[in-house]
Simulated scan of single mutants.
Amino acid sequence: MAQLSVNVNKIATLRNSRGGNIPNLLHFSELILNSGAHGITIHPREDERHITTEDVFSLQNFLIQYNRNVSFRREFNIEGEPSERFVNLVLKAKPDQATLVPVRPGEITSDHGFNLNDKSEADRLAPIIEKFHKENIRVSLFMDTDFSQYKTAKEIGADRIEFYTGPFVHAFDKSEEAGKVYYREYETAAENAYKLGLAINAGHDLDTNNLKLFSHIPHLEEVSIGHRLITQSLIDGIEKTVKSYLKILSKETES
C-alpha cells in the first residue's frame, strides 16, 4: 500500500488570510494523523504565503512528540526549491524526507519537474543531495515522465522521484479515458525508475476519483496530497476525507 502524506499548506493559507492562529495548524495535523495518514508534507515558500519558518519548527517538534506515543512512525516531508534558504531550513528541521522541486518566481503552484538534461541543473542538485544524506535525510526529486533523465537522478544521489501528476489529472478531469492515456506514460516511467533503483512518490491534484486509477502505478511508495484533499474535507470533514483516501490506496474499494 502506498503511504499517504497530507500537505497542510492550505490550512496555513486559511489561517494567514485572517492572521492569528485559527485554524490551528498543529491541531489539524494531529487530526490528520489520528485519521491514519502516514505523514505530513509542507512546502515553505520564500514569501511565507502559507507555511512560515515558525511553522516548520512547530511541526518538527509536534511530530517528535506525536511519534513517542504511536505504534508506527509518521514522517515529515519538506518540499521546496534547491536554494540556500531552503537547504539551511531543511538541515535545521531534519525531516525524514526532503523533496526538491523546481520553482519559478511568482508561480502559484508547482507545475513541472526538473530538467536533468541540463547539466547545470544536475550539478546544482548533487551537492545539496549529498548534504541531506549526511544528515540521514531521504531525498526525492520532482520529475516528469521523461525517464531518460532518471539515470542522472540516480547518479546524483536521489533516493526517489516524485511524479508531477498534473498532466494525468488534467486529462482525467476531461474524461477517464483521456486519463488512461497519460496513466500509461506514468506506468512506463515507474517501471524504468524502479529498474534504476529509484523509489516512486507522486503528487499534484490527486483526489478520490483519479486516485482509483493512479494508485495502481507499479512500485508506488507515497502520494503527497494537499489542495484537493483539504477541499474535500470542507464537505466531508478531515477524518472522513483522510480515511477515504486511505481506503483507495489500500485497494479496499475493488471487488
Rank of each mutant, 00 (worst) to 15 (best):
A2L: 12
Q3S: 15
V6T: 05
I11N: 00
T13L: 12
N16I: 06
G20W: 03
N24H: 11
L25C: 01
L31R: 15
S35H: 06
A37Y: 07
G39Q: 09
T41R: 01
T41G: 02
T41M: 09
H43K: 04
P44N: 02
R45C: 05
D47H: 12
R49F: 02
I51P: 02
I51K: 03
T52G: 03
T53V: 14
T53A: 10
V56K: 04
L59W: 09
Q60F: 03
L63N: 06
I64S: 11
Y66N: 07
N67P: 08
R74Q: 13
I78E: 01
E79M: 07
E79T: 07
R85N: 10
F86H: 12
N88E: 15
N88Y: 09
N88P: 06
A93R: 08
K94Y: 11
P95A: 11
Q97Y: 14
Q97T: 15
A98E: 09
A98T: 14
T99A: 11
P102T: 09
V103G: 00
P105G: 09
E107M: 12
S110V: 11
S110L: 08
G113D: 11
S120N: 12
A122E: 07
E130H: 14
E130V: 10
E130T: 14
K131T: 10
F132R: 07
F132P: 01
I137S: 05
V139R: 01
M143Q: 04
M143L: 11
T145S: 12
F147K: 05
Y150Q: 02
T152H: 01
A153K: 02
I156Q: 02
G157W: 03
G157S: 01
A158F: 01
E162T: 12
E162N: 06
Y164H: 15
A171T: 00
F172P: 00
F172C: 01
K174A: 08
E176N: 05
V181N: 06
Y182D: 09
R184L: 12
R184K: 15
E185Q: 15
Y186W: 03
Y186M: 02
A190I: 08
E191T: 12
A193N: 03
Y194E: 09
K195L: 11
N201P: 04
H204E: 04
H204F: 03
H204Q: 06
T208P: 00
L211F: 04
K212H: 00
S215L: 02
L220I: 00
L220G: 00
L229G: 02
L229T: 05
L229P: 00
T231C: 08
Q232N: 15
S233Q: 05
L234G: 04
E239I: 13
K240P: 02
T241K: 06
L246D: 08
L249I: 07
S250H: 13
T253K: 12
